[in-house]
Each structure stands twice: as C-alpha cells, then as structure tokens.
Simulated assay, not measured.
Amino acid sequence: MTIELEEPPLTRDNLQVYKDLFAGTIGGISQVLVGQPFDTVKVRLQSAPEGTYSGALDVIKQLIKNEGFRGFYKGTLTPLVGVGACVSVQFSVNEFMKRHYDDKLNGKPLSLGQFFNCGAVAGFANGCLASPIEHIRIRLQTQTGNQKLFNGPLDCAKKLYQTNGLVHGIYRGLSPTLIRESIGLGIYFATYEALIKRELSSHTNLIRKDIPGWKLCLFGGLSGYTLWIAIYPVDVIKSKLQTDSLTLPKYKSSLDVIKDITKSSGIKGFYRGFIPTILRAAPANGATFAAFEITMRLIS
C-alpha cells in the first residue's frame, strides 16, 4: 500500500544548495552540543572490555571522578566540525532528492517509500564522510587517564594512516557505517516527514513554516528514536571495529565482531550502551531538526 504525503511546492533558487548546506551545518552543531555527553557514555560502554562498567551510571561516575565534567566533551572538536559537515550533507542530499522526486512526479505528493529513498541516498553519501570522522572521534573519546596515544584529531588521523593506511586505518568500519546510515536515515527522514504531514493534515490552512519549534523538536526526537531502535546493533559492530587495537587487531571484519559478541554476550551484547543512546536521541535529534527548519525559515 502506498501512502502519499501532501507536500507544498519545494523552495528553489540558485542558492538553494548552499542554503541547505548552511542550515544542515547549524543543525549538526546543535546536535553535537546537545548530544556529545550521551555519546561519550555510549561509546565507553560499547567499547570497554566486559566488566569494566556496570552500566551507564557507572561510566558517568568514573568519568566525573577521573576526568571531570570536561571528560564528557573529549573529542568534541572533531564532531563539532565533522558532524556539522555530515548533517549538512544529510540534509542537503535529502532535500536534493526530494526536489528530484518532485520534478519526476510533476508536483504530485511523495510517498512514504520515496521519502525513505531520499533519506537512504543521503545516508549513503553521508556514510563516506561520517566513517573517518567517527573513527577519529571514538579513538579520542576512549582515551582514559594517562593512556593518551593521540594528541588531538589531526595527530589521530596521522597515526591511523601511518599504522594501517587509508582503507584499513582511517576508513576502518566503513561497511557497517554505510549500512547504518543508509537504512537509518531512510527511516529517520521518512518518519519526520510522516509526522510533519500528519500535523499539516490535522489543521486547516496550516503550512510547514508555521509549525512551532517545540513540535519540530518533538518530531525530530521521535525520528531519532526510530533511527536508533532500527540500527543500534550495527552501530555497536562499527564501534567495536573502530576501537580495536591498531597494532594487533582482534577483528578482521564485521563478521568477526558479530561472532565474538554473540559468543561472549549473546543478543544483549548488541545493545550495550543503548540506554544513553536512546536518552540522547530525543534532545539531540530534536535540536537538529528544529535548528535546520528554523534556519531555513530565516534564510529563505
């Protein structure tokens, strides 16, 4: 069954791509500032050896005790720049694909499946950029105490390249990243558009730019929930690959990670760190969509 969602005419001008990129960057910066502490806790839980932490609260206690509140923002420079770039790619490609379908359908409403396709293409494009950025961020986030191998993002990128090269070093974890981004962002953007269209259809004469900011945050938060519920196990696999030893790697591929997690922890091993991730989903993604939509209103 095809679900059609009414869509007002899409904005088009010679600067539209640049506007999409700029608004996406603002959304990405908002996402990092709101979500980085949750992400640090998630990564520590995902990547630490079994028994290191008893749960998310234990990570928080140890982090504050050993590193202070600044520890929650370790490696923030990389995502602040990188996630800003990633989200700008996500949103600009998604908007480009929406305009592509709009031209193809001669202004007819896009279906839910077509919104999914828009997000999936955006996710694949973003995955190529997100993979090295997330790898560097995770290496920095998991440095604890005096065990400091990297002196910042540039030093990290340099050492990853020197140790294992471009493909097996900097781009380690690319395959699960592409899977996660394509499926996840397809669901993410389709959910958001479905919620927006449901809101528009339930109010007479309401247009998209008149939807209040708090509802944009709510819709973005709910979209974040669907994203992470769908693809969290893939994110765990990616994190395991990207925190593996550089000199004596335990895993050769994603399949090795799957086998190891299944053997040592069972299904629950694929959901380590899920609580801080799902707690992060609402504020971080709510801020992302609200910042993007409001920025677009201001510059359009």
Rank of each mutant, 00 (worst) to 15 (best):
118 C>T: 09
63 L>S: 03
45 L>H: 06
54 S>I: 03
43 V>D: 11
71 G>A: 14
77 L>T: 13
38 F>C: 09
88 S>M: 08
135 H>T: 14
132 P>A: 06
36 Q>F: 15
127 G>H: 01
98 K>P: 00
87 V>S: 13
52 T>Q: 09
121 V>Y: 06
34 V>A: 07
138 I>N: 13
129 L>M: 15
92 S>C: 13
77 L>C: 06
105 L>H: 05
115 F>P: 01
95 E>M: 02
71 G>P: 10
99 R>T: 08
89 V>D: 06
123 G>Y: 09
53 Y>F: 15
79 P>E: 08
124 F>K: 00
69 F>T: 14
129 L>H: 06
120 A>F: 06
118 C>A: 15
35 G>R: 01
121 V>P: 04
56 A>G: 14
84 G>N: 07
90 Q>Y: 12
71 G>W: 01
131 S>L: 03
50 E>F: 07
84 G>P: 05
106 N>H: 12
122 A>Q: 05
73 Y>Q: 04
112 L>I: 08
123 G>A: 11
65 K>H: 14
71 G>V: 12
111 S>H: 11
87 V>I: 15
109 P>K: 09
84 G>Q: 07
87 V>W: 12
118 C>H: 03
32 V>R: 00
134 E>I: 10
77 L>M: 15
89 V>R: 01
116 F>S: 11
97 M>C: 12
103 D>S: 09
125 A>N: 02
56 A>S: 13
104 K>Y: 11
129 L>T: 09
35 G>K: 04
55 G>Y: 07
93 V>L: 03
89 V>W: 07
96 F>H: 14
117 N>D: 04
110 L>D: 06
55 G>C: 06
39 D>V: 11
104 K>M: 12
59 V>C: 06
101 Y>R: 09
106 N>F: 02
41 V>Y: 08
33 L>V: 14
83 V>L: 15
72 F>E: 03
76 T>E: 05
100 H>N: 09
73 Y>H: 06
90 Q>K: 04
101 Y>Q: 10
52 T>A: 11
121 V>F: 11
132 P>D: 10
108 K>L: 11
45 L>K: 05
43 V>T: 15
106 N>T: 02
95 E>Q: 13
100 H>K: 12
76 T>N: 12
32 V>S: 00
99 R>D: 13
63 L>Q: 12
82 G>W: 05
54 S>Y: 00
65 K>Q: 14
39 D>A: 12
42 K>F: 00
35 G>I: 04
133 I>M: 15
45 L>N: 04
40 T>I: 04
75 G>W: 08
131 S>F: 07
50 E>K: 15
88 S>V: 02
94 N>H: 13
128 C>R: 00
42 K>A: 15
100 H>V: 12
77 L>N: 08
121 V>S: 08
48 A>P: 00
108 K>S: 11
124 F>T: 10
84 G>A: 01
122 A>E: 05
119 G>N: 09
59 V>L: 02
114 Q>P: 00
99 R>S: 11
124 F>E: 03
52 T>M: 02
64 I>S: 04
41 V>S: 09
53 Y>T: 07
50 E>C: 03
48 A>N: 03
127 G>K: 02
65 K>N: 14
127 G>M: 03
34 V>E: 01
66 N>P: 00
81 V>T: 03
123 G>K: 02
64 I>H: 04
80 L>I: 11
131 S>H: 08
70 R>N: 10
128 C>D: 00
43 V>M: 11
76 T>R: 02
46 Q>L: 13
55 G>W: 08
116 F>D: 06
76 T>Q: 10
33 L>A: 12
82 G>R: 00
120 A>M: 01
